[in-house]
Simulated scan of single mutants.
Amino acid sequence: MTIVANTVPLPADWRDFFTLTKPRVMTLVIFTAICGLLAAPGSIHPVLGFTAILAIAMGAGGSAALNHWWEADLDAGMKRTANRPLPGGRMRREDARDFGLFLSGVSLLVMGVAIGWLAAAMLAVAIFYYAVVYTMWLKPRTPQNIVIGGGSGAFPPLIGWIAVTGEVTAMPVLLFAIIFMWTPPHFWALALFMKSDYAKVGIPMMPVVAGERSTRRQILAYTVLLAPVAIAPWAIGGTSWVYGSVAAVLSLLFLALAVPVGIRTRSDVDTMTPEKTLFRFSIYYLFVLFAALVADRVLAAQGLIGPGMLAGVGA
């Protein structure tokens, strides 16, 4: 790896280290992990629940810092990332690496000792998946990087569920699958209007390698595939009609927004309104879907709806 342009780093402050954890991504990680924890059958002491979420957040932040360390040169070449702490010259690369390793190591230790080693093992896989499998191997080599690498962001609700139950069952696997299938249409919608940045630094994102038309078709295809996966928790009896109806409506809206993106042949960055709308909606989609999962669990626990996952499907 070559040295980024600014070779005399300025003193980094806490905000630069915080930036290394990718706080915007962290918000989604923490939210889905909390939802997995709250939706799981059984209960967990609030202190232990907080500890589990903290460990997941630290693990995600650590792997994000390692991503910054490894991709500093690539970030320097893209407008969207050029002012990050490393390409901006505010931090040494080895400091970012050490920070990432420290956060990752502490997160695994905390999770293992306080919650359990199965949850810690899953967290270790998630960290390795993002920092090594996705960042170092898939992203620079294949346009399928987002498809395969999507698993890294799908672990938080699974780990949150395991923190409560201590086991892997059908429901948390479905939560993993929802995020896994959601990632390609979500990220490729962004990649369509960030295509020039990825091409500039040689990252083989789908729009760069396969072209816009193929990417658009695949966005539509994955959106179609996402719908039954999102509804599956209700279909197997793991939730009530509350979650099922929300999942169905959200998935129909997602599909309605994906169709105009999928049928377009080509457009320039200034006319990418459908793509930008789809990208923004995809974020709300995941937040509302997982919030509905928790609401379903709370309503069932209060006896206000059918038992759903309390009946044992997710236990």
Rank of each mutant, 00 (worst) to 15 (best):
I203P: 01
R92G: 09
R80H: 09
T135R: 05
F31L: 14
K22H: 13
L118W: 12
D98P: 01
L158P: 03
L174E: 04
P41V: 09
V269H: 13
M91P: 05
F99Y: 15
A57I: 03
T271K: 14
A292D: 10
V201S: 03
P307R: 12
F287N: 00
L190E: 06
G112Y: 08
T27C: 09
T51M: 14
D197A: 03
A258S: 15
G306H: 05
A256D: 07
S214H: 14
P143G: 02
M136L: 14
R84V: 02
T169L: 11
T7L: 14
M122V: 03
V242E: 06
G36Y: 11
T142F: 12
A126R: 03
G238W: 05
T51V: 15
L192E: 11
G59P: 02
V201N: 05
I3A: 13
I115G: 01
K276Y: 12
V164A: 04
P274G: 04
W182C: 00
G211K: 10
V249A: 15
L103I: 01
V110G: 02
D268Q: 08
F99K: 02
V168A: 11
S251F: 10
G88N: 08
F102D: 02
M309R: 09
G303R: 10
W70H: 13
A232Y: 05
P85A: 10
